[in-house]
Design a protein around this nucleic acid. Sequence first.
DNA 1: AACAATTAATTGTCAGACAAATCAAGGCGG
DNA 2: CCGCCTTGATTTGTCTGACAATTAATTGTT
Lengths: 256, 256
Amino acid sequence: MQVEYRLKEDGDLSVQIAGAIRDAIVAGRLIVDERLPSEAELAEQFDVSRPTVREALKRLAAQNLIRTRRGASGGAFVNRLRFEDAHGQQITTSTLLLSMNAVDFETACEARYALERACVPLAAARRGPDHLATMRAEIHRQGQPGLSDESFCASDVAFHRALVDAAGNPVLSYQLAGAVEAMQPLMNMITFSARSRARILALHGAIADALEARDAARAEAELAALAAYTIELADDVRARRRARAEAAGGAPGTGQ
Amino acid sequence: MQVEYRLKEDGDLSVQIAGAIRDAIVAGRLIVDERLPSEAELAEQFDVSRPTVREALKRLAAQNLIRTRRGASGGAFVNRLRFEDAHGQQITTSTLLLSMNAVDFETACEARYALERACVPLAAARRGPDHLATMRAEIHRQGQPGLSDESFCASDVAFHRALVDAAGNPVLSYQLAGAVEAMQPLMNMITFSARSRARILALHGAIADALEARDAARAEAELAALAAYTIELADDVRARRRARAEAAGGAPGTGQ
DNA sequence: AACAATTAATTGTCAGACAAATCAAGGCGG
DNA sequence: CCGCCTTGATTTGTCTGACAATTAATTGTT
């Protein structure tokens, strides 16, 4: 199929070409699994050299918009973007955003629980036995003695992911699971005492119970309690760190 | 600074190199605004040719992880990822996801309003006069006669964006504004009659009023009503389209 | 007809070169 | 002494041409 590409007059050639092809994909002029012309043909069409075309294709490949195969009937093909592909991408981006913009824990935490709260009514209405089973399993794991903080956090993420998935809306799962997982590095900074683990465990159990009973209001309340407790824990960590800094270094740190 | 890169043994060279550098950035071994070695040096370090290094760098540039400048003190620099950068990227991805996975309108709509609902309590507590002013302005524009459906949708997006921003949480804004804007193409398929516009306008006004009064519960209720009405409109469109198809083509379509 | 070898097409990688942009330093004039 | 211009060095952007690796279709052989 002959596809028209519209070049913009901005930036480097490979950027322009990547943009033109991307626009063609987004606008539907190139459809899923359609094969792009070979690099040589593209180079001729755009009147550039093959390396330039290649750089443009690599840009698109990095965004999962195309895949390439070599060989006789190889070439570049338009990708069907799947939720799970976009997922990993979003986690990387979100993680970097959180770390580089130095979002404070409270803000990230607030966002996370606000988003999860959005899922609760749907989850209460639609949760299946498998979702509940996953939650119970993670709760059980979180109760195991000798679990490392990191494993505890990972299990925590799995629990919340099950909650989000229980809402039965793939768009929500995609958006949210990214946000939840991106927060894990921040959560990992918290060291969980036995007492705080017990408390979290109890709240997780209460949330699972409420969802099992399809009681959205109670689930929201328990989730809110969990959010508050998490922030409380983070405050403790911050306070303790500051105390240590003052005791050790004399001048108090900036808190950053 | 000397940075170690860890290559994985999977896939093409440029993929491996891009992955190694990306890992170094994510892990913090390369910090923001740090300059990477020149392409020639990287080529030597990784023992590949310069074009291969370039393809790897283009992959990273496509993800906004690095920026490049030419010239004497130019080179590739680690980007500080800003929310607005990630934003555009997320909109493209979300738009493609929605169109290519053929998410039905109801699912997308449900997700959107669930997410917005998560913002309401925060927005009620924190909305400033500027957020209210933006909302009022968009409501006013939506009331203008002769406004095209597309402009109406755009204004709708702006209104909801103000709502999200009123929550005063950049993480929420980033996550949500992407979801809301990605839905616009789907929303554009609806043609708004004068009557439905008036109804939507009224609901927008009610939401703004509730936020002005810092009444989260009422705002949530009005938002729920808006969600229900939007889905109702979409159902109408679907029903009318099916009726037309049956009248014209004989056999009813699959709905897809 | 089934299997193996060949061939063609395509991407992946390399080498070397030049153009374009950009900054730093030095020279020149005021 | 200060400011402007020129020059040079450095680095990315692009081109050319070539070869290697991979894959599918074709052809030949049994």
